[in-house]
Design a binder for these strands. Structure first.
Length: 362
DNA sequence: AACACGTGGGG
DNA sequence: TCCCCAAGTGT
């Protein structure tokens, strides 16, 4: 069997027909029947979901999307929000620069654009935290622009459809051209979402369900090779191990000593328990200097946490103190309200290691 | 261009 | 257990 030529018209027709029947229903999405009647999604909802979805699974995003809309129903509300509250609400979702940029972006939209998102790719891309992908996605989905939307899903679909031999990320420019050629003037937003749904549900990284794919007869990878070998990627580097220590102090009122991290860099602007720097050094000895105050510190085990570019092994120390000692820069937070703080997951792990009941309900 | 930047789920 | 990776952006 030969691989039939794929025209742009065929691609859009095949994909949109598939999407009408098999699209996912998502909280931020306008379903195809509505979309076909010209209803477009709220740009604020589209932007919020797209930022949350950067490198993050749909499953993880749903609850956060609901929470943010509940707390800040409009972009003006978010623009007026306290940064600390935004960081608290984002805690656990990761890539915290997104949360810092989120409020900056809302502020820019509210103050510089009268509360309306720009309706062009160029205007959108000028906003904080909005890059090439997100600008194209918002333009297509919320403003019906014919922009070429290229994310990890689309890269996978395109790389297989055309059996692209160039490795990522070098192949991206060429793929954007291919997507641009296929994107229809009618329903470009649905086309983009359909490509992403296809990548997420059919054209998956492992064991793609090619028999169910609308491009089944048109896919060069399927007809000439093993689709699973695409996209070809540059080799990744191995993760170094870093070591450190964390200090969990508990006072006689069941409060834990916390402090705020610097606004930039790893976990920037988030809350932490005091600790050492994290380095490759194999010593907990420098940890003496990192103790927030003198107390009967006792080792209570280690935790491991994997970041994007290194693995962390943290030695956790605990101390019970009679009363809340004054200490520069931090504060004492009751265990009961720890869950409302801007604590990244690694810090919750460290606290849970020292206080096993800290995050248990009741 | 290459690297920094989180987390949780699935195979 | 370990590896992969998920709707990327900023520098």
């Amino acid at each position: 069997m030969t691989c039939e030529t794929l025209t742009a018209e065929d691609a859009a027709a095949l994909l949109l027909t598939w999407y009408d029947r098999h699209h996912r229903d998502l909280p931020w999405r306008v379903s195809p029947p509505m979309a076909r009647q010209g209803v477009v999604a709220d740009p604020y909802h589209v932007w919020l979901s797209e930022v949350m979805l950067q490198q993050t699974t749909v499953q993880a995003v749903k609850a956060y999307f609901d929470k943010f809309l509940r707390l800040w129903p409009t972009v003006e509300d978010l623009a007026a929000a306290d940064s600390e509250d935004v960081m608290k609400a984002w805690a656990g979702l990761g890539y915290y620069a997104r949360a810092r940029n989120l409020r900056k972006c809302a502020e820019a939209v509210a103050r510089e654009h009268g509360g309306r998102f720009p309706d062009t790719e160029e205007g959108l891309k000028a906003l904080p935290g909005v890059g090439a992908y997100t600008a194209a996605a918002i333009a297509a989905i919320a403003f019906n622009r014919r922009s070429a939307v290229l994310d990890g899903n689309v890269e996978r679909v395109i790389s297989r459809l055309y059996a692209v031999e160039t490795p990522l990320p070098a192949a991206k420019a060429g793929m954007r051209q291919l997507v641009s050629r296929l994107t229809p003037a009618d329903r470009p937003g649905d086309f983009a979402q359909a490509m992403m749904d296809l990548g997420a549900t059919i054209c998956t990284p492992k064991r793609p369900a090619c028999t169910l794919c609308p491009f089944h007869m048109k896919c060069m990878a399927l007809h000439s090779a093993d689709p699973e070998t695409f996209p070809i990627k540059a080799a990744k580097k191995e993760k170094p191990v870093r070591l450190g220590a964390a200090f969990v102090a508990i006072d006689n009122a069941d409060a834990v000593y916390l402090r705020k991290r610097p606004d930039t860099g790893l976990l920037g602007g988030m809350t932490e328990v005091p600790g050492t720097d994290w380095s490759a050094r194999r010593d907990g000895e420098t940890s003496v200097d990192a103790r927030p105050f003198a107390a009967p510190w006792e080792p209570c085990g280690t935790i491991a946490h994997v970041f994007t570019h290194f693995e962390l092994r943290l030695s956790v120390y605990r101390a019970n103190v009679a009363e809340a000692l004054p200490a520069a820069g931090g504060w004492w937070e009751p265990i009961a309200t720890l869950n409302m703080q801007a604590l990244p997951t690694v810090m919750k792990k460290a606290i849970a290691q020292a206080i096993p009941h800290a995050f248990k309900p009741g």
